[in-house]
Simulated scan of single mutants.
Amino acid sequence: MSDYNFDVDILRGQMARVLSDNEEQFAFVITEAISKIDISEAIELGQLGDDADADTAIANLRALADAIEAGQLS
């Protein structure tokens, strides 16, 4: 799968780095994105980033889900 540009002309790797440097916006961006996507299609077409650590990604996604379930995010 090749890289691609978003409407804002930023590569997905750059977007990921910017998002990872801005904790304040992380949960908003992630939950906004996954609330409006066909997750089955995203999984089928998706791939982990080159520097992604699968175990950390899974742990962080579980922590995010737990926080949403507990009402810690508003």
Rank of each mutant, 00 (worst) to 15 (best):
I39E: 06
A54W: 03
A70E: 13
Q47S: 10
M1T: 03
E44Q: 14
F26Y: 13
A67T: 03
T56M: 07
A70S: 05
L64A: 13
L61V: 09
F28L: 11
A16M: 12
A54H: 10
A42D: 07
V18D: 13
S20R: 14
A59H: 02
L48A: 06
Q47H: 00
E44S: 05
L64M: 15
S40H: 15
L11V: 01
N5E: 02
Y4Q: 01
V18G: 03
A65H: 08
Q25A: 09
D38C: 05
S20T: 06
A42M: 12
D66L: 03
L73Y: 14
D9P: 02
N60K: 12
V8E: 07
S35E: 12
D9C: 04
M1L: 15
E41M: 09
F26G: 08
D53K: 13
A57I: 15
F6E: 07
A65C: 01
A42Y: 07
M1E: 10
E69Q: 09
G71R: 08
N22P: 00
D7K: 00
D55C: 07
D50H: 06
A33Q: 09
D51P: 00
Q25N: 02
D66R: 11
T31C: 03
A27E: 06
M15S: 04
I68V: 12
I30K: 11
E69S: 11
L45E: 13
A59L: 11
N5V: 00
D55G: 15
S20F: 05
A67P: 09
A54V: 14
S40E: 15
I10S: 02
A54I: 06
Y4M: 04
G49L: 05
G46T: 09
D21R: 15
K36Y: 06
D50Q: 12
Q25V: 01
D3K: 01
D51S: 04
S40D: 09
L64T: 01
L48R: 11
Y4P: 00
Q14R: 07
E32N: 14
I39Q: 02
L19Q: 04
